[in-house]
C-alpha cells in the first residue's frame, strides 16, 4: 500500500468499473481460446473495451475482444492502457460461478483492487452476493508481434460455416501433424490436406458448397502448412452457441503465410432485457465478442535447407 502506484490508484479511483448482464456469453467467448488447462492470459484495458490475449510458444496467439458495447456499464478511468496477467482457466472458472442458469444476473468487474486484484461481484440481489478477487500478475511481454499484413494487394480470405470448419479440422486429426491449406482462384476452392499416418484431403469448392463456403477472395494460388495442434486449437473449444447460431468463421492468409481465424461469439442475453438497460435508453448495437487466432505457418523445408 505504500508504493506510489497504489497511492495514485486510490487518489484517482479504479482504472475500470464495468457491469455485465450476460456472464455466460463472456464465459463462452473466453472458453473458445482455452485450448489447454494452464494458460496465462494478458488482459488489456482501454476506453474501447477489454482485450484478452493468450499465446503459445510464439506460434499461436488468440485475442478475445470484449467491446464496451457488451457491458451495461463501462467506466474507464485510466490513462494509457493498463495490462495485467491472470490465469485464464481460473478466470473462466470463476466467471462461470457467477453465471446462474435461467436467471438474469448482473456482474460487476473492477480493477485494480487494493492489492492490484481483479474484483468481481454480483450486484443485483440484495440478500445474496457472490464475490471474488483474483490475484493478477505483472504481464509478461508478448513474445512476438502479430503484425498481420495482407499477402498481396487484395487480402486472401474465405469465410466458412463455423460448424463445417470445426468438423473439417476434427477430421484432419487422423493424418495429424502437419496440415496444408491451399487456396486457388480457378476453380475457386479451398483445400485442407493432411499427410502423416495417412492422407486426407478436404475440399471446399466455391460452386459446389455455396451453403458452407460463404465468401471467397483469392487472386493467386497460395499454400501454407500449419501444425495440426495449433490449427485444432482455433476450433476445438468453439462455443456451442456459435454452431447453434449457424455463424461463419473467416480465415485470412497474410504475409509470410500467417493465418488469421476469426469467430464471432454472441453474448446476447437469452432472457428478457434488464430494466437497467431500458431505463438508460441504451441500445445494444452489437452483442458480439470477436475472437481472433493467429497461427504461424510451419517453416518451409527449402528455407530450412538454406540455413
Amino acid at each position: 500500500m505504500s508504493s506510489p502506484a497504489a497511492v495514485d490508484t486510490e487518489a484517482e479511483g479504479p482504472d475500470l468499473v464495468c457491469e455485465l448482464d450476460s456472464v455466460q456469453g463472456i464465459v463462452d467467448a473466453l472458453t473458445s481460446v482455452r485450448w489447454k488447462r494452464h494458460q496465462d492470459a494478458v488482459v488489456e484495458l482501454s476506453e474501447h473495451g477489454i482485450v484478452i490475449i493468450v499465446e503459445e510458444t510464439a506460434c499461436l496467439q488468440a485475442k478475445v475482444y470484449l467491446q464496451r458495447e457488451l457491458f451495461v456499464k463501462y467506466e474507464y478511468g485510466a490513462h494509457g492502457r493498463p495490462r495485467f496477467g491472470v490465469s485464464l482457466g481460473l478466470f473462466v472458472d470463476c466467471l462461470n460461478t457467477f453465471s446462474v442458469p435461467g436467471r438474469s444476473n448482473i456482474l460487476e468487474l473492477r480493477y485494480p483492487g487494493p492489492d492490484m486484484q481483479l474484483l468481481l461481484r454480483s450486484v443485483d440481489c440484495p440478500d445474496s452476493c457472490i464475490y471474488a478477487d483474483i490475484r493478477t500478475r505483472i504481464p509478461e511481454t508478448i513474445s512476438w508481434d502479430y503484425n498481420f499484413e495482407p499477402a498481396g494487394s487484395t487480402p486472401i480470405s474465405f469465410t466458412v460455416k463455423s460448424a463445417a470448419l470445426k468438423e473439417a479440422i476434427d477430421d484432419l486429426e487422423w493424418p495429424g501433424s502437419s496440415i496444408q491449406i491451399k487456396l486457388q482462384p480457378a476453380p475457386p476452392s479451398v483445400i485442407f490436406r493432411g499427410e502423416g499416418h495417412g492422407d486426407l484431403q478436404i475440399d471446399f469448392n466455391c460452386y459446389a458448397n455455396t451453403d458452407l463456403l460463404i465468401a471467397f477472395c483469392c487472386d493467386q494460388p497460395i499454400s501454407h502448412r500449419y501444425k495440426y495442434k495449433f490449427l485444432r486449437a482455433t476450433t476445438s473449444n468453439i462455443p456451442s452457441s456459435v454452431i447453434r447460431d449457424n455463424r461463419g468463421s473467416k480465415l485470412t492468409i497474410g504475409r509470410g503465410g500467417m493465418l488469421k481465424v476469426q469467430h464471432l461469439v454472441s453474448v446476447a442475453k437469452p432472457s428478457t432485457p434488464h430494466p437497467h438497460i431500458d431505463s438508460a435508453g441504451y441500445q445494444q448495437p452489437s452483442r458480439i465478442a470477436y475472437i481472433e487466432f493467429f497461427v504461424k505457418p510451419e517453416v518451409e523445408e527449402d528455407i530450412v535447407n538454406d540455413y
Binding site: 445474496s128 452476493c129 457472490i130 464475490y131 471474488a132 478477487d133 483474483i134
Partner: peptide, 12 residues
C-alpha cells in the same frame, strides 16, 4: 487460495 478468493454471502 493463493490465487483467488471466491465467496458467496446469503443474508436474512
Amino acid at each position: 487460495t493463493s490465487l483467488i478468493t471466491l465467496g458467496a454471502e446469503f443474508r436474512r
